[in-house]
Design a protein around this nucleic acid. Sequence first.
DNA 1: GCCGTTTTCGGCCCGACTGTTTTCAGTCG
Length: 578
Amino acid sequence: MDNQSIAEVFEQMAELLEFKGENPFRIRAYHNGAKAILDLDEPVAQILEDPSRKLSDVPGIGKTLVDKITVLVATGSLPQLLELQEQFPASVLAMARVPGLGAKKAARLHQELGIDNLAELKTACETDQVSGLKGFGKKSQQTILDGLAIAQAAAQRKKWVNADGWVARLRSHLSSCDAIERMEFAGSYRRGRETCGDLDILVVADPAAAAMDHLEAFPPRKETILRGDTKISIRVDEAFQVDMRVVAADQFGAALQYFTGSQAHNVRVRSMAKAQGLKVNEYGVFREDDPEHSIAGGEEQEVYAAIGLPWVPPELREDRLEFDWAKSGDPFDLIELKDICSDLHMHTTATDGEATIGDMADAAIARGLTAIAITDHSQRVAMARGLDPQRLREQWARIDQLRPQYEGRLTILKGIECDILEGGGMDLPDDVLAEADWVLASVHYGQRQSREQITDRILGAIANPHVTAIAHPTGRLINRREAYQVDIDAVFQAAAETSTLLELNANPSRLDLHEVHCQTASRRYNIPIVINTDAHSIDGLDVMQYGILQARRAGLQKQHVANARSWDAMKPLMGKYR
DNA sequence: GCCGTTTTCGGCCCGACTGTTTTCAGTCG
């Protein structure tokens, strides 16, 4: 059982225990345990097997969870979980995810009215059975009915790039509000998470009501979910929630810190504050003995400084590595878009791209790049008219012709995105690959094969001396397709041994490697990461920014990113050039 | 269930808003 599966078991335990009305701290312990395992940079089984190490040394994992993990690794299932699932089937749990309902209320509906699923819940509301229950009223009943209607749509978070589109529209709309003096988008959007469940807007405004009125006048608004003196939530689109909080100017930093999260990061920040006799909330930092006067709060930096921390980049605020990093005294200095020198994955009209080599080269120069690799598909990708050896060599001859025009301005590499075939092996013969400057290997077909098969295929590609990097190593498409089954640690191990680079594909639907894998590959295995756009058009080159955001979340600095160097400086990183 | 420069018990981050309550529990972030 891999880390992700174990983490999922603990998340399910937490959800079920909450349903049962268990001690909230015990529930949190399961959440924390799940997170701790997910953030580990190696399989838990590996730690269990090593007699010189203790799994209970991992913060958040105590004796009980170690026992449960041991059972999970040995048997693949957990008796306690099965027991709870029998008591509360998944259809019952789904009720707790209806907006307005939580575990407690959902459990009562199940226990007192015998409601087992969403369909029965709907009927119960429509036949007025719910409003008679103690603690429920007509309004609660209507809230549930409304919640049921949007529960489906709300199940999916928006990709960051789509959330960014809403941010642009909201920014533009709110900028015409005279009452708003300062504005920032916080939450998972600011942290650059690959998906966003909602948007959090923080404003300084006078009067506060004017800012809220203005938000309510946002044309795509579907409804106002709630509105108080300082806080308003509206719904746009099918089920996308936008929250706004109005704070005073001298509270803005504290509020921004608070609403940027993550929750886990904030829990740590406040615990640290508490240990120092301080209290941190969204209004400022306060001494325990003087809760009236804030000692910090106007800017985020002050809040962190008050508890002895440097300002933490939002992308790192996940309670993953930022606190140890801060303690070490090393500056964060995360990778930035301007550090990128080259883009080594793009397609042209030769296969499924929309622009020619020359177009792409000119566009790359306009974006400040000094090298690109032309990496069209290989022959197996027939749908995209993938290149056979002859057409590939013709393309390379064309690159030879073009190179003099770009001398001193842009290095155009002869590349290929070569498929890793279903039966193993590369889609082009070695003598062809040997002529390339840059060979990406990737899996497009047979993604539903077994973990062993796919892992073997990728390890085979890594063992090929001509392969310089593995493109989109896990094949996932956010919100659309799960990653294929692969022993990612074996891939990292092999890549490290052969000096094969790994790609962080910047396409906002891929972002593959995802951040935790990317962090592991970089920090634990010292594998240089190459961030590429996989552009199929000139505009496609602009997705680099999303890859940078993801790389920052993985804690990558300039020196961890291969293409934050010139092409010549990159060569020593690769086995092919040694 | 975890954890310890307040150590093996007794804590565990903090507040806004809503609905159904007469002082607060539940939900949400």
